[in-house]
Computed example of a mutant assay.
Amino acid sequence: MKANEKLDVREIRRKLGLNQSQFWSKIGVTQSGGSRYESGRNIPRPVQALLRLVHVEQIDINKVKRDDVEVAEYLKATNPELYKTLKKEARAKRKER
């Protein structure tokens, strides 16, 4: 999924078999807030990023540490080719599971 693609969050939620409360609580959004997003309200970029991480990439954000994020941001800024390679390898490893 490309960064600029619009997420169809209702479809993602339904494919995962989750109700609104289950789906949205995983990223810290209330059920009523999630309902508004599913009804067409613009989703803020940070929420979109969390949706992709948690529900598309299947990353457990409870296991992500601030240091991990800072290292990834630094690597992306200073060596984008290595960052892309590592990201690709990580995705392949997750698919193996």
Rank of each mutant, 00 (worst) to 15 (best):
M1Y: 09
K2E: 14
A3R: 15
N4H: 15
E5L: 07
K6M: 12
K6Y: 08
K6A: 13
V9Q: 02
R10K: 15
L16G: 05
L18G: 01
S21E: 14
Q22H: 09
Q22K: 11
F23C: 00
W24D: 00
S25N: 07
G28S: 05
G28H: 02
S32D: 08
G34K: 00
G34Y: 00
S39A: 14
N42Q: 12
I43C: 01
I43Q: 00
R45I: 14
R45E: 15
P46I: 03
V47S: 02
L50S: 09
L51D: 01
L51Y: 01
R52L: 03
H55I: 04
H55N: 06
V56S: 07
V56W: 03
Q58M: 10
Q58P: 04
D60A: 05
I61Q: 04
N62D: 11
N62V: 02
K65S: 13
R66G: 07
R66Q: 13
D67P: 02
E70I: 10
V71R: 12
V71M: 13
L75A: 11
K76A: 12
A77C: 10
T78W: 03
E81D: 15
E81M: 12
L82N: 06
Y83W: 15
L86H: 03
L86R: 07
K87W: 12
K88P: 05
E89A: 15
A90Q: 10
R91C: 11
R91A: 14
A92E: 12
R94C: 03
R94V: 04
E96D: 14
E96N: 12
E96C: 11
E96F: 10
